[in-house]
Amino acid sequence: MSRRAAGDAKRWPGLALGAGFFFAYVYLPILILVALSFNENRVVTVWTGFTLDWYKLAFHNDAMLRAAENSLIIASVAAVSATILSTLAAVRMAQVRFTGQTAVNALVALPITVPEIVPAVATLMFFASLGVTLGLGTVILAHTVFCIPFAYLPIRARLEGMDRALAEAAGDLYASPRRAFFKITLPLMMPGILSGLVLAFIISLDDFVTTFFVGGAGSTTLPIYIFGLVRTGVTPEVNAISALMLLISIALVSLSLFLGRSEHRY
C-alpha cells in the first residue's frame, strides 16, 4: 500500500467494517419488525404464516390512525420549532462571548437532565393553574422545549471551532451580517442543523411520558396508544403501523432529496 493510499482517511480499515456493523445492528430489528407485520399469528413474536390482514385492520383502526397522525403533527411542528430556536441561539452563542454563557449552556441542557416525569407532572400543574385547555397545542409546546437540547447540541458542536473563520470570511467579503449569515454561516451549519432536526423529530415521535401528562382530549399519540395496549396485548397491527411509518419516512426523504436536487438545477 502506498503511503498516499494509507493516508486517505476514506479508506482506513475498520471504517467500512464499523459502519457495516452499525447499519446491521440498527436495521436487523427493523427487518424483523416489518417481517412480523405480515405474520398471520395474532401473537407478535411467533411466526405462523403470511397475511396482509394486519394492514387491513390497521387501516380500519381509527383510534390508531388518529394517534399516528397526531404523532406526526406533533413531531414535525415541535422538531422544526425547536430547531429554529436552537439554530438562532447557537449562532449567537458561537459569535460572542458574554458573562453568563455557561449558565445559558446549562439552561439549554436542562430539559434532558431530569427524568421526564418530573417536569411533565409540573408542567401539567402549571398549565392547569393557568386554565389552559390541554390538547395538541400544549403537547407541541412541551415537546418543543424538551427537543431543544437534542437540536441545539449537534448544531453547537458543528459551530465549535468555526467561529473565528466565520467572522473572518464574512469580513473579507465585506458582506452585511445578514448576507454573511445566509451565504456563509447557514450553509456551513447545515449538517448540524439537519442532525439536530432529525434527532429532535425522533425523540418527539417516541415520547410517552410528557405527551401523556400534558395532552388532553384528542391528543393521544402512537406511543400512548401502543403502551395502552397492556390490558389486551400488542398485536401485529402495531407492526403494520410501524412499517407504514417507515414507508412515510422513506417517501418524505426521497421527496426532499428530489426537491432539493431539482431546485439547484438552474
Binding site: E69, N70, L72, I73, S76, V77, A79, V80, T83, L136, K183, L186, P187, L188, M190, I193, L194, L197, F201, L252, V253, L255, S256, L257, L259, G260, R261, E263, H264
Partner: peptide
C-alpha cells in the same frame, strides 16, 4: 458547500409544509 444547502432547505420546508398541512387538516 452551498450546493447541499438547497437539498436541506428543501427538506426543512418539506417537513414544515407537511406539518402545516396536517395541522390545518385536523
Amino acid at each position: 458547500k452551498y450546493r447541499k444547502t438547497s437539498a436541506w432547505t428543501g427538506l426543512a420546508s418539506g417537513v414544515a409544509a407537511l406539518g402545516m398541512v396536517v395541522l390545518s387538516a385536523s
